[in-house]
Each structure stands twice: as C-alpha cells, then as structure tokens.
Design a protein around this nucleic acid. Structure first.
Lengths: 211, 211
DNA sequence: CGAAAAATACCTGAATGCCGGTAGGGACCA
DNA sequence: TGGTCCCTACCGGCATTCAGGTATTTTTCG
C-alpha cells in the first residue's frame, strides 16, 4: 500500500486528485492538509510515501516548504503541483529535494505515471512544464543568464568570502586596504545582480564558480 | 532518421555508444567530436536531433558547453553523460538547457529509452543518478558527527537565510519582530559554532541540512 | 605606443549583522 | 508541580556590509 499526502488549500484540487486515484487500489490518500504547518505536524507523526505539494500556495512559500519537508523526511517522494507554469520553479524544486513536477491540468494517467516514476527512484517532469523550460532558453533573455566574467582578483576574493571571511580579514590576509576589498565585493555584487553576500555565494555556486 | 552527435574525448566511450546504437536502424551517429570547439563548428553547419555530451571533460567545462550549444541550438535535445556521479550537476545541467542525464555505466536499453524520452519532450534522468541525490538526504540518518539539533523555527529561518534574505525581510515575512529573528540567527550561529552567516550556510550544507 | 581593463584606494551615510546579555509565556513531561 | 525546551521579544554597543560615488596606478594587449 502506497500512502499519499496532498497539500493544497483548494478542496477542489484535493478532491480532484482523490477522484483520480480512487480506483487505484494500491494508492491511498491518507491525509489532505490545507497549510504547510498542518502538513509538517502530520508528517512528524506519520511519514508517507508520496507527497503532492501545491507550490503556488498563496499564504506560504511552497518551495521553502518542500525544502523543509525534505529536512526531516528523507525517503518521501515529493511531487510539486502548480497551475502557474513558471519555468524557474522546476530547477528550484529539484534543488530543494523535489522529485517531480506536475501541472494542475494533468490527465489521470499522467498523475499515476508520475507517482510510479518517482517511487521507482526517477525524477518526473510533466511534458508541458519541460517545454516551458526550453522556451526560457529560446527566448532572448537567455543572455541575462550569461555567466559573469570575473577577474582573477575577484575570483580570489569570492573564494575567501565563501570561506566566511569578513572584508577586514581578507584585507589583512592579502595586504590590501579594506576599501579595496569592499570595492571588489561591490563589483562582484553588481556582476551577479544581487544585493548581499549570501546571494552572491549562492549565485556563484549556481554558475559552478564555487563548490 | 534521428541524427546523433557524440561529444567525448575518449574514443572508448564514443565507440561504446556507437556499438550500443548500431542495431537501431532509425538512430544514426553522424559525428563524434573530441572537443567543444569541434562540436560547435560542426553544429553550425549541420544541426542534429540528439547530442550526447560528456560533462566530465577535463579540458573544458561541459556544463558551460551545454549552455553554449543551447544558445544557438534551440531544438536539439542534449543528454549529459558522466562517470563522476556528482549530485549537484544534475540540476545545473537542466538549468543550462540539458534534457537528460546518464551515467557511463548505463545499459544499452537505458540509453535508447533516454533518447526516446527526450525526443518526446520529456526530461530523462538516470535512476542511479537520481539515487545519488536521494542518498544525500538519507545519509543524514546515519548522521556524521555531532550534527546540531535544530528546532522547527530554526530550520525555517535557516532556509530563508540561505535564500539571501536579511533579518528584517524574514521578520516581515513571518510577522515576527526583527529581534526574534536575530535571536534565532544567534542560536543557529552558536549551534554550528560559527560567527557569521556565510559560514553558517556553509556548515549547514556540509551537514547536508541545506542544498 | 596608446587604449582599455584591472587593481588599488578613498569617502560618507545608512542599513544590517554580531555579541553580550535578560525575560516572559506556553507546551510537554516526569 | 517543577523543570526544561521553545518561541518570542527586548537592550546597548560595536563591527561590518551596502550603495552611491571619485580617482590614481598598473597591467594587458592590439
């Protein structure tokens, strides 16, 4: 018996999914939660095999919830469900421990197929969703995703920042003025279009400039 | 007829793949390239349906090459092939326009299945590769050394910090006082024995609490 | 050589982070 | 019913970062 948890605040959606699954004897929806908190409390007492998570919840950040579920729940398979077909969400979801991605206008067969796939250890992405990702690259703004070109000094300082060193500490280590370090940091922030060091390091990892 | 380009600098690998595909009448390997440059030059003159790209090339960054191919080549399906089974590479590959991910120790059937899937508009990830991602989370159970025990609130705030949010921003999002957020941050810093947020996030990743 | 890029350094003001506390209320449990 | 967490909130003070600049020197390269 495969247990399923549905997280969505629209009864219409949860009912629809339950209906889709009602003739599958081995699939049992053991709980529907309307909020992230409700889901987390439930999961603490009773883990499930598959979690269908509405990412487009208005009151809570679905992506953060996915990551949070993953923190304490290593074996569950999480499938993100959304109506908003935002391309960036997919890689985000995988980043945060998701195993699949479905659109709300899915067919019954696709839902069941997706559940089987993720239980089998695969990642399942809906065809429509994947098309959106490809469109991202087809569109012109892919130039925006261009990897920033960093100078030697900038890379050096980026690494030291990722080691958690502060500006003054780096300055001392490299026998430079603190002003100089801050100038380099400023240029790094600008090149990555971010506004704090945590985001800078995150972006640098995304671009595989940092580990 | 489906045309295939293989990019790999090991003849052993390219030959192996060609052998796997030789009895498939509709699949034709029309070119093997040993360098990224060679592949790009070829693609300018003759686009192909499927590209099998060795990501673990020593002389060139395979992920960057994937992105570069995608910039000028919108319809080709790109499948990353690697022996190094680094979990982080998968989402990177998708982020840069890849459509699939295979390990070099794949079976013939899996290769053909993957080609069919990506041509069908899906994303294909090898089961083994996906398992690695999941292992990241499972390894927590056998947990390493003294991993700090975090409360629910602390985990939540840790995730938001890793998104680059500042204290005041998190406070606003969670309808809490800035003081409260800073208290939680303070406790997190103490639990991980670090003295700034960059090191906190680094440590949390080391403990596989964050991605 | 000459231009462009990179590296260095400085400044100010505002915002945020870090460190050392303290402290009340609620939940859980022996 | 008393102890122990957890969550919440507050304070002062100092350090650091961020966001705007400007400006000089050194390096790189056609």
């Amino acid at each position: 018996m495969i247990t399923i948890l549905i997280i969505d605040d629209h009864p219409l959606v949860t009912d629809g999914i339950k209906t889709m699954l009602q003739h599958e004897a081995h699939l049992q929806v053991c709980k529907t939660a309307r909020t992230g908190r409700e889901a987390l409390v439930f999961l603490e007492q009773q883990p499930v095999d598959v979690i269908l998570l509405d990412i487009s919840l208005p009151d809570i950040d679905g992506l953060a919830l996915c990551q949070q579920i993953r923190l304490t729940n290593k074996t569950s398979r999480i499938i993100g469900v959304t109506s908003a077909n935002d391309a960036g969400i997919i890689t985000q979801l995988l980043h945060r421990g998701g195993n699949g991605y479905l659109l709300k206008n899915m067919e019954r067969e696709e839902l069941i197929h997706a559940i089987n796939r993720v239980l089998d250890g695969h990642v399942y992405l809906s065809k429509e969703a994947n098309e959106k990702v490809l469109q991202q690259y087809r569109s012109l703004d892919s130039a925006l995703h261009q990897m920033p070109v960093l100078t030697r000094r900038e890379k050096e300082i980026l690494v030291l920042l990722s080691d958690g060193m502060t500006g003054p500490q780096i300055a001392e280590k490299l026998f430079l003025s603190t002003y100089t370090i801050e100038t380099h940091r400023k240029n790094l922030l600008q090149k990555f279009s971010v506004n704090n060091t945590a985001l800078l390091l995150k972006a640098a990892r995304d671009y595989r400039i940092l580990n």
